[in-house]
């Protein structure tokens, strides 16, 4: 059992990484990764919603009839997202302001609904927690890596602290929409290469 749980956890980190391998949840991945702070906050918020809804859904999976499965999942997810939104607005107003629209959009992040459908609705709670943790961390680390690359080249800083001195002329394109697509494309390409080497 423990071995299984560990396997579920490890799954999301690399082998079935939501962003690099499954290519889901792309909207927040591209939109909020202009600074490391935003990327990290988005990763944590998404992971929280993912973990809470996987727990609830795996606990009550037997009570939910099959034909209203998806609407029920979406309702539960939307509830947790609203909670997260109000919580951030109340206690971390700056983060809430900079992520603005993309907190409510966690509702339709395909990653969350996808995991409920593929995992939480079929497996015991303990394994669902492991899966959610793995997927959440897998999602977060790619967000942080991508945002670090974009912030470093786009603004010459990490976490808002200047790393590259004043000699560095920031490549503003990196923090713009175009830079998001380009850097994620190159990042996924590099990951593909590493993967192929590994095989």
């Amino acid at each position: 059992m423990l071995k299984k749980i560990y396997k579920d956890f490890k799954n999301g980190l690399w082998k079935e990484n939501p962003i690099i391998v499954l290519v889901i949840g792309m909207c927040p991945t591209l939109a909020v990764t202009n600074t490391v702070e935003n990327g990290l906050a988005m990763g944590i918020a998404t992971s929280f919603v993912l973990i809470s809804s996987e727990i609830v859904i795996s606990l009550f999976k037997k009570l939910i009839p099959n034909n209203v499965r998806i609407p029920s999942f979406i309702l539960i997810i939307a509830t947790f997202v609203t909670f997260t939104d109000y919580f951030l607005k109340a206690f971390f107003p700056d983060i809430a302001a900079s992520l603005s629209l993309f907190i409510p959009l966690i509702v339709v992040n395909c990653l969350i609904l996808g995991r409920q459908e593929a995992f939480a609705s079929k497996n015991p709670t303990s394994r669902a927690i492991a899966d959610a943790l793995g997927m959440g961390i897998g999602f977060t680390w790619v967000l942080v890596l991508l945002s670090a690359v974009r912030e470093l080249f786009g603004m010459g800083s990490i976490f808002g602290i200047g790393i590259l001195g004043s000699w560095y002329e920031p490549m503003v394109i990196m923090v713009l929409p175009a830079g998001a697509f380009l850097s994620l494309g190159i990042l996924v390409g590099i990951m593909n290469m590493i993967k192929r080497r590994g095989n």
């Binding site: 290519v23 697509f181 380009l182 994620l184 494309g185 190159i186 590099i190």
Partner: peptide
């Protein structure tokens, strides 16, 4: 290495 998703993203960037 760029086939599939990566090249699509780069196109989107352009």
């Amino acid at each position: 290495t760029l086939q599939g998703v990566p090249i699509t993203l780069i196109l989107a960037g352009l």
